[in-house]
Amino acid sequence: MVITLNGAKCEISDGTTLDELLTSLAGSSRGSAAVVDGEVVPRATWGQFPILEGQVVELITAVQGG
């Protein structure tokens, strides 16, 4: 299925959870956060949070700045 991940179209397997997506992108989910369709998703639910076709997902982390 196709989702929008950090502003770009992205093909992922059906049933991928947020936790799996974060790990595949960043290696781990430490220090990261997820926003799906504009809502911040609580960390505790990432493992059970299935991503759906067409959703807009932002995966965010801390970087140098400020």
């Binding site: 995966l59 982390t61 801390a62 970087v63 400020g66």
Partner: peptide
């Protein structure tokens, strides 16, 4: 220390955290 929040970039190595 203060840090900014930005999209994860898989090309970067190392973490400020």
């Amino acid at each position: 220390c203060t840090v900014a929040m930005r999209r994860i970039d898989p090309r970067t190595s190392g973490s400020i955290i």
